[in-house]
């Protein structure tokens, strides 16, 4: 008799645990408007990306097409993957002295691991992390970018 009672209580307890599980899923089924997924390309405008989000390395330019990069190459040294190549040129100043300046700041987006070490190391704050994360391209070669814009020059007063 005892075994029969325990047999039945076992079944009822089992069914009860199943019902509590079903209650949880039912709660979400009957509130379908509370879905957590988003329709991605449609919600681009309302998409919130954190300001620190590391999407790519960019070099901000001001309205006069000026940047802060001196071409010191510290970012190149700090990059673990060789994503950054610095090509410098020498400028001859008015007083006849030679000065190193950036010719091309080459950034290989395809090799970058977004570790932020270059940005952290940059002594002048010339490069920062951008929030753009849509990097899909048809041609791999377009992932190699030149960060300083053509014809740009260094801002007044930025020194290494």
């Amino acid at each position: 008799m005892k075994s029969i009672i325990s047999y039945i209580t076992e079944i009822l307890k089992g069914i009860w645990t199943l019902l509590t599980g079903m209650k949880v899923t039912a709660k979400y089924f009957f509130t379908p408007w509370k879905h957590v997924t988003q329709q991605y390309p449609e919600n681009r405008k309302t998409l919130k990306i954190a300001e620190r989000f590391r999407g790519e390395v960019i070099m901000p330019h001001n309205e006069n097409n000026e940047h802060k990069c001196t071409g010191c190459g510290i970012c190149e040294i700090n990059c673990p993957n060789g994503s950054i190549e610095i090509i410098t040129k020498s400028l001859i100043l008015e007083d006849g002295k030679k000065k190193r300046a950036i010719d091309q700041h080459i950034y290989h987006l395809g090799m970058c691991t977004f570790c932020n070490l270059c940005v952290k190391a940059c002594p002048t704050g010339a490069i920062v992390m951008g929030q753009n994360f849509e990097h899909a391209v048809w041609d791999r070669s377009t992932l190699t970018k030149v960060l300083n814009q053509p014809g740009s020059k260094i801002m007044e007063g930025v020194k290494d």
């Binding site: 899923t25 979400y28 089924f29 379908p32 509370k34 879905h35 957590v36 997924t37 329709q39």
Partner: peptide
Amino acid sequence: KVCAAFQQRMGPM
């Protein structure tokens, strides 16, 4: 669609 609703998703859209 039903499974999506159970899982707080939207299902095929």
